[in-house]
Computed example of a mutant assay.
Amino acid sequence: MRKYDVFTFGETMVLFQPEQMLPLEYVHQFPKRIGGAESNVAIGLSRLGHSVKWFSKLGDDPFGRFIRNFVRGEGVDTSSCLFTNQAPTGLLFKEQMSPEDVNVYYYRKGSSASLMEPADLNSSDIKEAKILHISGITPALSESCYELVMKAVKVAKESGTMIVFDPNLRLKLWSAERAKQVFNEIAMSADVILPGLDEGQLITGKQEVEEVAEALMNGGEKTIIIKLGSKGAYLHTKHEKAYVEGFPVTQVVDPVGAGDGFAAGIISGILRQEPLHQVVRRANAIGAMVVGMSGDVEGLPTFTAVEQFMQPAGQSRDVNR
């Protein structure tokens, strides 16, 4: 019997995001939030009604405690999280010059999360979950984090836990060559792969959407869903191939976090055993909702909210998020 729907792990940082659209040198107040791909997915899934466990190594400092308390407050199990006094919790600052022009400044080198290592991982956390969600950010943090990810992949394969892999390429953390090598290594074992088109092109060396998806299949029984931004997504399995249209966005407020919301939508639909076309459509809707609100997690909807959002134009969408 699986205890959790999803287990995920990675680095979450304290996010300082000013409310004004100005260069950072002219900003004097920074509201405190959190930002991290894996915790974004965990919170998104919790809001959609799923049981989730999230693991990280946090600094034994006020920022680390703030992150743990925030994520736990969203209904995510944080009981496996570790604290260390050997390194601080990572920080990032988000500079927004316009709704589409966003710069992110990371202060994460040598952070507490970069000290994660295979011995920190409780294998039972993976064995007790239906799905293991992996982001390509974590193996880029350090060699020990890479080894941790590969241990997680091995445990998941041995225990029959489904692996969902979102490449989440961050070239500020490592070279394209190393990213390609590691992404291919993870993709070989993954059951579901959720790349953006540029990430898929990096992994496979192919250019066209359909060719990228076919290469990622690698002759196996995988589910490939390629994110295409405002155009929606491309779904590719052994038995189904389809473009799934996105939802119109009247105003982009903050594009960061849309991919994590999309991933949460895909995983939620898989857990609900829904038809894949319907799964991707809802994931597209969540992505559209996230970009309409400031912050990484603030726009992540409840299941009721996203269902209301997907209603045909003219029907009421006045619901609590």
Rank of each mutant, 00 (worst) to 15 (best):
S111E: 03
K180C: 12
E177V: 07
T237M: 08
P23Y: 07
E208N: 12
L235K: 12
G36W: 00
L235D: 04
C145S: 09
G205V: 05
D60H: 14
L235P: 03
I186Y: 03
W174H: 15
I224Q: 00
M13C: 07
E211I: 10
A87I: 08
Y107R: 10
E158I: 11
A87K: 03
D260I: 03
A152R: 01
M97R: 10
V297D: 06
P23Q: 15
T89M: 03
F309R: 04
D60S: 12
F183A: 03
L216R: 00
T250V: 13
S159K: 11
E128I: 15
G229K: 09
A156P: 00
V297C: 13
P248W: 07
Q311M: 11
I134C: 00
V291Q: 02
Q207L: 12
G265H: 08
A288G: 10
Q96F: 06
P255W: 13
T89F: 01
L300R: 11
S111N: 01
G229D: 14
G196C: 05
A187G: 11
N85F: 07
E19G: 14
Q86A: 14
V319I: 13
V291G: 04
V41C: 10
V14C: 13
V280R: 02
F16V: 03
K172R: 11
P255L: 15
I225V: 13
D61H: 09
S294I: 09
G246I: 00
F165H: 05
L271T: 08
M289P: 11
F70N: 14
K94W: 10
G44I: 04
M97F: 10
A263Y: 05
D5W: 07
E208I: 07
R317G: 06
A213N: 02
G59A: 09
